[in-house]
């Protein structure tokens, strides 16, 4: 009974911990959390595009959207409840994604303590795949600024006129400052670069592989990156160039 012998002799931690201990398990967690964050990003991007919609009874459409998010599933759930459930899930996904990336980076550094002295010439690894930890880390710092700017209204990240719930006004005030616009555009491009490798990589990590569809994984990664980047860039640029007033 080779199976039971080999399985028994190791000391076991609780199953999820045991699973997460392995690098393949961590990559699986990274893929699942990445997928969740992409789902959020798509919803967020679509929400942002409401900035282009006309006012409803004198109230900007995006303000109503913000209100609706707070009142998600009211009256079945109290106000804010579903929003906070979603937020908690999102924060948890970010924490796991970042922790897995961090510990795998440590593992990979240890796997080659003496590096090549001569120059390396890469064939398959591209700019996106080789800068994942940089694009990810920089994006994380941008995210802190973004939360201070829109969600929390902490100055100087947020404009002086920041007011809770006034999404449209805050939006306009924030992007009237050109360095902020540049920051957001840069972050959206970084996100696109990160996803170009991340989306493709996700399929591999989850073991979703079929020679018939494998080329489509690249197209999907490229397409999603471009759509998300453009979708996130459009509203800030529209404000900066005075398309929206």
């Amino acid at each position: 009974m080779a199976v039971t012998q080999t399985v028994e002799k190791k000391k076991r931690a609780p199953f999820p911990v045991e699973f997460y201990r392995s690098a393949v398990g961590k990559k699986w967690v990274m893929a699942i959390t990445g997928l969740g964050i992409i789902g959020f990003a798509i919803a967020h991007m679509i929400g942002n595009l409401k900035i282009f919609l006309p006012d409803v009874d004198g109230i900007p459409d995006i303000d109503l959207y913000g209100e609706a998010l707070r009142e998600l599933f009211v009256p079945i759930f109290p106000e804010y409840a579903v929003l906070w459930i979603l937020r908690t899930g999102l924060i948890l996904m970010f924490v796991l994604h970042v922790h897995a990336a961090y510990s795998l980076t440590i593992m990979n550094r240890r796997a080659r303590t003496t590096d090549y002295e001569g120059p390396r010439s890469y064939i398959a690894a591209n700019y996106a795949s080789r800068t994942m930890r940089w694009s990810g880390t920089i994006f994380l710092f941008y995210l802190l600024f973004h939360l201070a700017d829109f969600t929390l209204g902490i100055q100087p990240a947020a404009p002086e006129t920041w007011e809770y719930g006034e999404v449209f006004a805050n939006f306009q005030a924030t992007f009237d400052r050109w360095p902020v616009t540049v920051l957001y555009v840069t972050a959206a491009i970084l996100l696109g670069i990160h996803l170009y490798h991340g989306v493709w990589s996700m399929f591999q990590s989850l073991g979703i592989n079929n020679p018939r569809f494998n080329t489509w994984r690249r197209y999907l990664a490229g397409g999603l990156s471009v759509i998300l980047t453009l979708g996130f860039i459009a509203p800030p640029l529209a404000v900066a160039f005075g398309v929206i007033t």
């Binding site: 690098a23 990559k27 398959a124 690894a125 990590s205």
Partner: peptide, 9 residues
Amino acid sequence: FGSCTNHGE
């Protein structure tokens, strides 16, 4: 060894 990040090298 290290972990796979799907570079494809």
